[in-house]
Design a protein around this nucleic acid. Sequence first.
DNA 1: CGAATAGTTCAAAATATTTTGAACTATTTC
DNA 2: GAAATAGTTCAAAATATTTTGAACTATTCG
Lengths: 93, 93
Amino acid sequence: MLNEENKNQIAIFKALADPVRLEIIKYLKEAKEEVTCGEVGKATNISKTSGSYHFKLLQSAGLINARKDAREKYVSLNKSTFDEYITNFYENI
Amino acid sequence: MLNEENKNQIAIFKALADPVRLEIIKYLKEAKEEVTCGEVGKATNISKTSGSYHFKLLQSAGLINARKDAREKYVSLNKSTFDEYITNFYENI
DNA sequence: CGAATAGTTCAAAATATTTTGAACTATTTC
DNA sequence: GAAATAGTTCAAAATATTTTGAACTATTCG
């Protein structure tokens, strides 16, 4: 049976196991600083609605940081989650 | 758009994004040497049929090595795939 | 104020993944 | 050779994920 930590792990792998979200992540890595959801959405060609769904999922997996400023939402990668759950995955299994 | 390498990456994350397969992987990591599908299936409590499905998927993602010897199939982790696609994921994005 | 912009929410439809059981192949044991 | 064992294949059913469009909230601009 799987514990709490394993559930996070699975949520994270699920979040990464999708072409749309992988493109978002690539874009955010290149961007280096926080950018708006709209900017990412335009660059990766996804609808507002679909973007909203994917950003939410990435956020709830802890892979991105998000901050709402008035009309806009700024997002950036949360590197510590990548370090802890992906880079160190094998050794921590 | 995503290239060939990205498709492998997604197949690998998909393979890891499942509780049954994560249990199989844990078992295989502990085992240290190759074991039969039957042994893993008993230990993790999955049906033959379901096991067959999951082992095939792990194999096609390159996460396990498999070798059939007469009636039995021996499986073990393919560490190089973990190293290349998981441990080094962030830096390679 | 009214229109435009950025993003969210909801429910339905479309797709993809997983589980199941029955029937099957191949090998081993009695 | 018959029965048991290890695993595979197939199609159907069950579940889970993703996309879509319409309606919505909140903010900004003229």
